[in-house]
Computed example of a mutant assay.
Amino acid sequence: MLAAYVSRFSSDSLDGLVVDERPAPPVRDGWVVVDVRAAALNHHDLWSLRGVGLRADQLPMILGTDAAGVVDGREVVVHGVIGGPHGRGVPADEPRSLLSERYDGALAEQVAVPAWNLVDKPAELSFVEAACLPTAWLTAYRMLFSVGGAQPGQRVLVQGAGGGVATAAIRLGAAAGLEVVVTGRDEERRARALALGAAAAVEPGARVPRADLVLETVGRATWSHSVRSVRPGGRIVVAGATSGEPENAELTRIFFTELEVRGVTMGTRDDLEHLLAFLARTGVRPLVDSTFPLADARSGLARLAAGTQFGKIVLTL
């Protein structure tokens, strides 16, 4: 089968990428093989190519955490979190992992996952739209609602317009009656955030009204601004640090203003079911930046690495 995989690690993340034939997924008890129709790209794929979270003895490793496809005529979305406290299909003591960390990922014609990890795809969503959801949109949903506890009428600050989590948070938040304020590096991204439903879009570091909740995925470049921008007793939910670890943890402000800081890695299978139902009922859809055939995975990953996308990049089969 055709697949995009890591052959070796490189600081130039695309040097070790190969798109070529790989063996079909092995058959395991309690697992199923999904015929992939669409698979979305994430920064996780770029980190894997650099060797983050992988060892050399695991190579070659097929990339990808997000997929939608078909199993025996059933249209499904793949929940990419394998094992952990809520998982099935692996030993109970096996640590949680994401597809492409311990088991081959979804950038392939087929992917094997525990049967429990499949969620029915609503007929209202295309395969491309559904493939956008299991990482970025699921993370945004969990940050806003399951962990963030956002309520209609509250103000939410989203750091970094343009990324998959940020665009998902804008659309989900606006549909749920939240006042979404977004920071963006350039005027075009801020304008697009407003078009997606943000109530305001400002330059990074700009003074904003105090937020009830801050969604933080950028890290060093925005952390101090996040801590200063949340109201006393408010909450910051962290799901990434794409610009690196903060140099100053701002602990004094955190304890003095009694802030709550919570971490999120994707979401549960239940969260994914709720997210799919939310989209099917409201008509909200993922923003797709571009699509590429699986055979041209390199172009898609190059666009992601360049940081010029707005929304999700999806590979199609």
Rank of each mutant, 00 (worst) to 15 (best):
G69D: 09
S7N: 13
D29G: 10
D29W: 02
W47Y: 14
A68D: 04
P23Q: 02
A68C: 12
G53A: 08
G73H: 09
G16C: 03
V27R: 15
V27W: 03
G30V: 05
V71R: 09
V36M: 00
G69F: 11
A68Y: 09
A56I: 10
G64P: 09
A40K: 05
Q58T: 09
L17V: 06
P26Y: 06
V33F: 00
D15Y: 01
R55Q: 15
M61N: 10
G84N: 11
L54A: 13
A56M: 07
E21C: 03
S13L: 07
L41I: 03
G84P: 10
D15K: 06
G51H: 05
V27I: 10
V78W: 03
L46R: 11
H43E: 11
D35T: 11
H43S: 10
P23G: 04
D57C: 08
V19R: 01
R22Y: 01
G53K: 05
H79F: 12
D66P: 11
D20S: 13
R88T: 12
A24V: 09
D20A: 14
L49M: 07
E75L: 10
P25V: 02
A38Q: 05
Q58C: 09
N42G: 14
V32G: 05
G87C: 08
V36L: 03
E75S: 15
D15C: 01
N42E: 08
S7W: 02
D57V: 10
V18T: 14
R55K: 15
S11E: 15
L46F: 11
E75G: 08
L49F: 07
V70P: 06
A40V: 03
L46E: 10
L46D: 05
V78Q: 03
R28E: 14
V78E: 00
G51F: 08
G83M: 10
P60W: 06
L49S: 08
S11M: 05
G84R: 07
W47I: 04
G53V: 03
G87I: 08
R28Q: 13
P26R: 12
F9L: 01
L59H: 11
D35H: 07
V52L: 14
E75H: 15
G87H: 08
H43R: 14
I62P: 00
G69M: 08
V76Q: 04
D57L: 06
A68R: 06
V27L: 12
P85Q: 07
V27Y: 00
V19D: 00
R22D: 00
R55Y: 09
F9P: 01
S11P: 07
